[in-house]
């Protein structure tokens, strides 16, 4: 399929969905409206709300807060994940001791931690960052751990035969291998950083996209809820595109995995 026809089909899906939504929420079919506007709003109102946010400029503050929380959560979670992942992979005994606790914490639905973080860190950005960190940390940690563990034994033997000492092995073999695993999960971990931020905001905050959605919901402003969701979706798509760009730069040495797109 050519790029043009693919793009036009993708746009067609959006148009059909919006049109269906509009028709079903505005005109009665066999006597009743399938999507009552009170619960489903309609695309025009949602669009107006989005435009109003951007026109008045209030949205920028919220976007910025969410972005800030996501980036902080990603950076702190990644540093922690890389550090602990390396440590555990190189010290199997430590890893074995901590193994059940790591599993236990990871199995915990992170949302239940939100009230505790709010108690500890207040309603500001740090309670949201903390929630994001608990999500990002484990993804990065498991990937780095795997990356260090799964260095090809041949490559390792070769590195040793080429005279590498322990420090050089770290730098030239374990580190790049672990990083490649970490970057392959970049989309997931960045996504979770955003999830942590938004969920945290939703549960109690004074700013951010989650706050915006929660506020709208509180006054039964369904158009506001949908508008918040659309802004959030667009926000995630932009971030994902940036991540793809970074990934492409950093992993030039890797063969293209998406071989199906000829």
């Amino acid at each position: 399929m050519s790029r043009v026809s693919l793009l036009s089909l993708q746009i067609l899906v959006a148009i059909v969905t919006l049109a269906l939504w509009y028709v079903l929420s505005s005109y009665p079919i066999f006597g009743h409206v399938v999507l009552p506007p009170f619960f489903f709003s309609n695309p025009i109102d949602v669009g107006n709300q989005v435009v109003a946010w951007f026109a008045s400029g209030v949205i920028w503050k919220h976007l910025w807060v969410t972005l800030e929380e996501s980036i902080l959560a990603f950076i702190i979670g990644s540093i922690g994940g890389v550090g602990v992942g390396f440590w555990f992979a190189r010290q199997p005994r430590t890893a074995a001791v901590f193994d059940p606790y790591v599993k236990m914490v990871n199995a915990l639905p992170r949302v239940v931690l939100a009230p505790i973080f709010t108690l500890w860190l207040g309603l500001g950005i740090w309670s949201k960052v903390a929630l994001g960190v608990t999500l990002v940390f484990f993804i990065v940690f498991f990937n780095v751990y795997q990356g260090v563990k799964e260095v090809s034994p041949t490559v390792l033997a070769n590195a040793r035969m080429l005279g590498m000492n322990e420090r050089q092995l770290m730098r030239h073999v374990y580190w790049p291998s672990a990083l490649s695993w970490m970057f392959s999960s970049l989309h997931t971990s960045v996504g979770f950083a955003v999830v942590g931020a938004v969920v945290g905001e939703y549960l109690g905050s004074a700013a951010g996209l989650g706050y915006l959605i929660q506020q709208a919901e509180g006054v039964f402003d369904v158009a506001g809820v949908f508008a918040g969701m659309f802004v959030l979706a667009a926000f995630v798509i932009v971030i994902d595109a940036v991540v793809s760009l970074i990934e492409k730069r950093l992993l030039v040495w890797r063969p293209e995995v998406t071989g199906s797109q000829a």
């Binding site: 041949t154 490559v155 033997a157 035969m161 080429l162 000492n165 030239h172 291998s177 890797r254």
Partner: peptide
């Protein structure tokens, strides 16, 4: 480890994250 020996492996043993030039140079750099 036998420091006098060079070992050419059967399986791929190049560092996939290094270019050909970096792969060759690494033995000197270490």
């Amino acid at each position: 480890l036998n420091r006098q020996a060079g070992y050419l492996f059967q399986a791929d043993a190049l560092f996939p994250w290094k270019t050909a030039l970096e792969n060759v140079a690494i033995g000197l750099e270490t």
